Measured scan of single mutants.
Amino acid sequence: LQAFIKTLTGKTFTVEMEPSDTIENLKAKIQDKEGIPPDQQRLIFAGKQLEDGRTLSDYNIQKESTLHLVL
């Protein structure tokens, strides 16, 4: 599935991932794409901060969901 990552500066980019991917995997993909170390990334979806060990499906993240990236 493709999801949108929106930063506080208003920049939006897309990442490809599977519902079974962990938040940790997602942070690694963001690092590959944007060069931001995972330990500096905080991802917010539906008002909740996402925990590394959980999966996208745990948070009911669907295709074309928008996640907010806070540094």
Rank of each mutant, 00 (worst) to 15 (best):
N60K: 07
R42F: 12
I5M: 02
R42W: 10
A46H: 14
G10P: 02
L67H: 01
Q40T: 09
K29A: 07
R54M: 12
L1T: 06
G53R: 08
L8S: 15
L69M: 07
K27Y: 02
F13G: 00
L26W: 01
T66S: 06
Q31M: 13
T9N: 13
K11C: 06
E64G: 15
P19Y: 13
L67V: 12
R42E: 09
E51Y: 05
K11S: 06
R42M: 14
S65Y: 09
I44P: 01
E18K: 14
E24H: 11
K27V: 01
I36A: 04
G53H: 14
L71M: 10
S20D: 12
Q49T: 14
N60G: 14
K6V: 15
K27P: 00
T66Y: 08
P37A: 08
K29D: 01
D32Y: 09
G53Y: 10
Q31C: 09
F4K: 12
Q40D: 08
K63M: 12
L67A: 02
Y59H: 03
L8Y: 13
G35A: 04
E51A: 06
P37W: 05
K29P: 02
E34W: 14
L26D: 00
Y59G: 01
T66P: 06
R54H: 12
T66F: 08
K48T: 13
L71G: 06
G47C: 05
I61Y: 06
P19N: 08
I44A: 04
Q40F: 09
T9R: 10
I44C: 12
L71N: 07
D32S: 11
H68I: 15
T22V: 04
D21G: 07
I61E: 04
F13K: 00
N25Y: 12
S65T: 10
F13C: 02
I44S: 11
Q62A: 11
L67K: 00
V15G: 01
L67Q: 01
E64K: 08
D39G: 10
T9S: 14
A3C: 15
T12Q: 08
F45I: 05
E34L: 15
K11E: 08
R54W: 11
T14D: 04
L8H: 14
D21K: 02
G10I: 03
E24Y: 14
K33G: 04
H68N: 07
L56N: 00
L67D: 01
S57G: 11
G47N: 06
E16G: 07
S57W: 08
E16P: 08
Q41L: 05
L1M: 11
G10Q: 03
P37Y: 05
G35C: 04
I30F: 01
E34M: 15
E18Y: 14
Q31D: 04
T66N: 05
F45L: 09
L71R: 06
K48I: 14
H68F: 14
V15I: 14
Q41I: 12
Q2D: 05
L43F: 05
I23M: 03
P38T: 14
S20P: 03
P38A: 15
R54I: 05
L50C: 02
